[in-house]
Design a binder for these strands. Structure first.
Lengths: 243, 243
DNA sequence: GTGCTTTCCTAACATTTGTTGTATTCCAGC
DNA sequence: GCTGGAATACAACAAATGTTAGGAAAGCAC
């Protein structure tokens, strides 16, 4: 995988959302990194670990998750190419959740130290990344709303629309069929329900002609109905530099 | 209210959690601000608004919340003195949720522009604030776990233990009786359940001798049981500069 | 004090969601 | 092609939570 391909989705996202400075991006791309591949279900970062690197998803899907004492697991966020899922570690020594590869993945690991030095040198890079962590936080807040208030039926619609929006940003669209490589159990863990219930809701959505999901491939059957269910208002993604 | 009192809770928190530099704090305290008082239930920031200031809670409690199309409301976080609930607006023009005063409140408003200039001048201030927004994000992630996976009974215990921990940080402890000025309906909105169900759970907790809540005052009856229910692991609060 | 409003409290019933258990389908590896 | 494990599907029943309705207590304005 060429260096250019590795940075492409991140740069594409940063350019449209933050109006990134080309010199800042060049400086970023000049940083040394290590590529590592992960297989499906492999743990990238473990809760409690103290990583000396931040990672960039070059290819594949990952999730953040937390497991509580009784064994239940909650998926906290879904990450796609171009995401930097542990930028927190620029400021925290420890990760406070797991990061797990959903599919076979390629990640680029960049030393925290090198990143922090670059940020001191070029504050614009720091601004981009700080902003990026703020969008991440805004996505988490919307996730709370989704789990706390929306019916499971609407919740799944919202989750899918959000992800499609983010995939679109990195140019992975997507007619009405696209990949979200979660099992039904994992969709359940993302929504705070069991896999049995997820299966029920998926059947309803299928019967109602809204969407189909099989083996991690979503197919939108009725865009209008989907929008109506999701009630998606993407402002929280802060897609334009001026919002 | 003297300037010293206004900054005190924030500085106390920053000193223990980030090992803040005294010069950075002095520079902060030298910034001009405007004090404004809010009454219970008054909106401080409205979803969609474009504030030119960031605010510091000098006294009182606030919540972030979002209201979805069908009128349901989700409380996203609870804020106490020393919190800066809209630091996002250092990088975003728009707020993507409401900020509402739970009790009578005093807030200090500081111009975004002045803050951003200070951050350029003293990167240490930027680091403190960036870190602060990252803790905020970590709290949101734990909130997702709470709403998504814990039983309502355990969920309420966790919420109360977390808040007590944060209150302790700013020296508002607190024997086994302390104030959390939410109505039962608001506790419900924080947990993603109805006020009726909140009332049921509170009764259970009372009958089981765990805790009592009346008119926004919590009284812990059995600390041991409370801990057992909450399964609280405070690592996500990143209370020490080295975590 | 009296009345008014909000919060709290409870019950009865409806709906959603979890649990358990068992088929069935799919797919990777042989 | 066969085979074993994972993922999906679905049903019956149990438990959690929502809805609706109403009464009791607390706090506030006059």
């Amino acid at each position: 995988m060429t260096s250019e391909l590795i940075w492409a989705p991140l740069f594409q996202r940063l350019k449209t959302t933050t109006g990134a400075d080309d010199l800042d991006l060049q400086a970023l791309a000049a940083l040394p990194f290590t590529l590592r591949n992960f297989r499906e279900n492999q743990t990238v970062l473990r809760d409690g670990e103290q990583p000396s690197e931040c990672c960039l998803i070059a290819d594949g899907f990952c999730v953040r998750s937390k497991t509580i004492a009784d064994g239940r697991r909650q998926i906290l966020s879904i990450h796609i190419p171009g995401d930097l899922p542990n930028l927190q570690n620029l400021h925290f020594a420890t990760v406070d959740h797991d990061l797990i590869a959903l599919s076979d993945c390629t990640l680029a690991f960049i030393a925290r130290k090198a990143l922090n030095e670059l940020i001191r040198e070029r504050p614009g890079v720091g601004d981009m990344f700080w902003r990026d962590t703020l969008v991440d936080a805004a996505v988490s807040r919307e996730w709370i709303v989704n789990v706390g208030q929306r019916s499971t039926y609407n919740r799944l619609a919202h989750l899918i629309v959000e992800l499609r929006e983010r995939l679109r940003l990195i140019g992975r669209v997507i007619d009405d069929t696209f990949a979200i490589p979660l099992t039904q159990e994992q969709f359940g863990e993302a929504m705070g329900v069991t896999s049995v219930h997820t299966n029920r809701i998926l059947r309803e959505l299928r019967v109602d002609g809204v969407l189909e999901l099989q083996r991690g491939t979503v197919r939108i059957l009725n865009e209008h109905k989907l929008q109506e269910l999701a009630q998606f208002d993407g402002r929280y993604l802060h897609l334009s530099p001026t919002t």
